[in-house]
């Protein structure tokens, strides 16, 4: 599998050089592998996230006014290390404490936990919110728990807006938690992405198969299912979400591409989602259609539904200026 890279080892440093050159409003610490805002706002709560790379624009593409203060990108599909997360936390700290938004994967949770301990040694107050919105995985004592996926973007936007607004650490963390509780996601893959170091697709699907409930690292979810028209695939995903947390009222929908699906197909999928939601009496009050949390060049979609409140809408609509989300400024 050909990749547009120099070598598998160089993917992250090369990309970080590119991010630094492309976005003058960001500061890229190549040594520690941290993307942060070039400017800090004294007294503002810092909002930090991070995780394995390969999900771009998540998280580095969400650093900027109104959203994250810093992001720590790990190796492809591998969580960042504590020192790196500490460096991101220090870059985000402006004296009012730092929120860690952590997707629920054992590696991320453990590395962020160790980083939080290191930060406390440096007198930086850290609160962590772990996102786990993927309904494909049964949340039970028999698993590592649900995975954090698309809802994380909403948590980052809302928490970032509240922090920009001057909210304190407790409030910012409360909002991120609330977003997570109100968000559910489900993904279906048509074919697997390829990790540069592996050089071949992470899994193999037959011409008539799809991976239902796939994770953002190509982890399997529920089952291999039969390929079907997009209407049915979207219906399956929304049924799964609805069964877990009934959908009603005003919702935010993210029709997300996994990196290898043409935008024209995502718009078609979004049309089906809107039809389904209309049919269930819900209203799509806000939406994103595009590649927002990817799995390298994996083909497929994920759908995230966040049940809105007036407060959440206000924070969602608040100005944001990052490489990947930008409005109001």
């Amino acid at each position: 599998m050909k990749k547009l890279i120099n070598s598998p080892d160089a993917v992250i440093p090369d990309a970080l050089r590119g991010v630094a050159a492309a976005h003058p409003s960001l500061h890229v610490d190549l040594e520690n592998r941290v993307i942060s805002r070039a400017q800090r706002t004294p007294g503002k709560v810092g909002v930090v996230s991070g995780g394995g790379s390969g999900h771009e624009p998540l998280h580095g593409g969400y650093v900027g006014f109104g959203m994250l203060d810093a992001a720590a990108p790990g190796e492809v599909y591998t969580s960042p290390v504590p020192d790196q997360i500490l460096a991101a936390t220090q870059a985000a700290d402006a004296g009012a404490g730092v929120l860690h938004i952590v997707k629920n994967y054992t590696g991320d949770v453990l590395n962020f936990r160790m980083a939080a301990e290191l930060a406390e040694d440096e007198d930086i107050q850290v609160v962590s919110v772990v996102t786990d919105d993927d309904v494909a995985v049964e949340d039970s004592t028999f698993t590592a728990g649900r995975r954090g996926v698309g809802g994380t973007i909403v948590a980052e936007k809302v928490a970032g807006a509240a922090a920009e607004d001057g909210a304190d650490l407790e409030t910012v963390a409360r909002l991120a938690t609330e977003v997570n509780e109100r968000s559910r996601s489900f993904a279906i893959a048509l074919h697997a992405g390829t990790v540069p170091a592996a050089g071949k697709p992470g899994f193999n699907l037959a011409e008539n198969e799809v991976e239902i409930g796939v994770g953002i690292h190509g982890e399997p979810g529920r089952e291999r299912g039969e390929f079907a028209p997009v209407k049915e695939l979207v219906g399956y995903a929304l049924d799964a979400i609805h069964a877990d947390r009934p959908i009603s009222g005003d919702v935010l929908v993210i029709m997300n591409g996994q990196g290898g699906t043409p935008l024209i197909e995502l718009y078609g999928a979004f049309a089906e989602a809107v039809d389904w939601l209309d049919g269930h009496g819900a209203t799509v009050a806000r939406n994103l259609v595009g590649n927002y949390i990817t799995s390298l060049d994996q083909a497929g979609f994920s759908i995230t539904v966040t049940s809105l409140t007036d407060e959440l809408v206000r924070y969602w609509d608040a100005p944001v200026s990052t490489p990947a989300l930008r409005w109001g400024v």
């Binding site: 394995g52 591998t78 960042p80 290390v81 504590p82 994967y105 590696g107 453990l110 590395n111 160790m114």
Partner: peptide, 15 residues
């Protein structure tokens, strides 16, 4: 190990 492994195994083996 903690500083460079990443993933679940880094903090676990490192600790």
């Amino acid at each position: 190990l903690v500083a460079k492994t990443g993933g679940a195994s880094g903090p676990l083996y490192g600790t």
